[in-house]
Amino acid sequence: MTPDGTNDSSTVVYFYDGTLEGFFSAVFDAYTGKDRPDIITVSENYQSRIDQIIHHVQTREDKYERVYDGIIKHIGPVGYHKVRTVFLSPSPDKDTILFRYLEYGFKVGKKIHVDISHELVNPVERLKKETWFEMHRMKMFARFAQMDNGVYFSKINPKCNVLPLVMEHFARRFNVQPFVIYDENHRILGLYDMKSWYLQYVDDDFEVPDCAEDDLRYQRLWKSFYDSIAIEERVNHDLRRNFMPKRFWSNLTEMSFIDPKDTIGHLGLSDSSSGSVVAHDELLPPEQRALPEQDASLF
């Protein structure tokens, strides 16, 4: 069953505002209202049919509170954490999946955490893993550059809306330096001003700022380190791409750095800035050189 209506035999559809509070309000309505929803989603994602019953959920704080309490009571803080995490997933079905999960959780209680092969539980466990891993990848692959005003700036493009999860990690680790993380996919800024961190939506005309001249020095040094650490005889682009998919490369200094002062730098680095052909390639005998990348999947 998909939000675009194919193979969709549902009759009752709930539309909500896309926020977590709105989603919990939808769950509240499902239990107190007349019609149990077959689908819960945001109206932008779904083309409703004329024969379906549509219900627009009113987001209210008391509804949110009631459902929150219910979740803690039946499936515990662990359950709440799972719901909270899966909610950040980009999957269009996540709301319906979560709703069915909660229905089951309200029925069986904490046993739900053990019953992981159950058809209503398994999708949530799977989505939670995917979302958590995307967050972990942001911890791995976010790169900062210092701007002229001393603030460290980073741009990320995560599939899931993980900036709230990731700000906590960086605010602790980098508590001695002010920083900004820009989630370009979700148009949100995470700001840390040395006291606390907060989120802010971004204007349409927002531009990624330039880094300080000084910062280029460290980018150059990092690129130099990156190129030197590989053992030529072990070059394996497939393995690297497996661990570090190409969709991350544009934000990684070591894969995308183009030195402004460089034509051919003294380490011959400029060719390797595209990432697909490493400078070391020339050192390999012909049969071992990597073929030009055919990326059918820039996953």
Binding site: D227, I229, R234, H237, R240
Partner: peptide, 26 residues
Amino acid sequence: SAQGGALGDAQSCGICHSFSADGRCI
């Protein structure tokens, strides 16, 4: 754990930040 006024923390799961051309974690 991080401490206010000091840079950094360490996490026991370990965090890889990059992967070199030979596929090894950095």
